[in-house]
Amino acid sequence: MNTLLEVKDLNVSFQGNENENKTGNKSENKNETVTAVSCLSISIREKETLALVGETGCGKSVVAHAIMRLLPPESIVKGTIEFKGKNLLKLSEKEMAKLRGKEISIIFQNPSLALNPVYSIGHQLAEPLRIHTQKMRWKEKEGKKEKVKQKEKREKKKENSNLSKVSRALKRVGFSNPREYMGYYPSWCSGGMNQRFLIAASTMLDPVLLIADEPSKGLDRDRVSELENELKGLKEKSETSLLLISHDLGFVRRLADRVAVMYAGEIVEIADPSSLFESPLHPYTRGLLNSLPERGFVPIPGASPPLSNPPAGCRFHPRCPIKEKRCTQERPELKESNGRAVRCFLCP
């Protein structure tokens, strides 16, 4: 299968000034550069689901936003992000805008804040349709000059068909009476409902690549399995590739084709879910799995290092139970062998 997205040596750093610190990490001083992602390479093939897991603050959302070029201006992004053979980092903002929402969609981590408080759900969900069909209409208009009345009529028809598309999308994510919810506003709805609105909005245009940042957060168990079916169906029907970011390892295991484990801005292990969950190689992955409730709830000792000043050598060494001397001095590379990749001196 062809590679759809190829991220090579991605480095993202934030020129630390003022209070831009999202996590409120106090150890990060002012005027420090935070390197949120370093030397990250991942690839997603067509129709593939790649999951990205890791502790909070390890840079998962930053990767997602970097791919869509949504990072704030104070960020410095290096490396290449190739999507369908084009380097997204070289595209103009206008060309990028054409891809966003149509070819690459994202479900944000915080749905209640991602929706605009003063517009109705229906209006906001129809927006991607409006944005990405306008350009075509533009061309037609230039071709033959229509009469105003005809145009109005068509526009109305278009709006109606948009609304019925929205209502179908809402039905798919489990709203039995979508027309009613389309008149609602985000503040009238729960976080879980807003999450499902975002999912509907992002999947409506059948994107080639869907980035889902914690899509199962805030949903109860029934909704999670509904979401799972929805995402599975999306992949089968419309050949969408999925970059799935989640804390819910069970959810990841059921959906992903490959799983990438991130620690402190780096990929430490990539493997298919069954081998990763049954025989994890990297000490961090093992620790992560051991901290699951069903495996004894054993937390990894210590805390993740500050990204403004990561430890020398292997970034995991202060917390690693099997570290050696060289781990504190040399940096391990990501080594690939029979379909898996690990960043550790002691792993094959």
Partner: peptide
């Protein structure tokens, strides 16, 4: 605010984010 970023993620371009959101 995040909704402005989401508007950009939907494919809106520059000044139309200001006017539409």
């Amino acid at each position: 605010q995040l909704y402005a970023l989401y508007a950009r993620a939907k494919g809106l371009y520059d000044i139309s984010i200001l006017f539409r959101h």
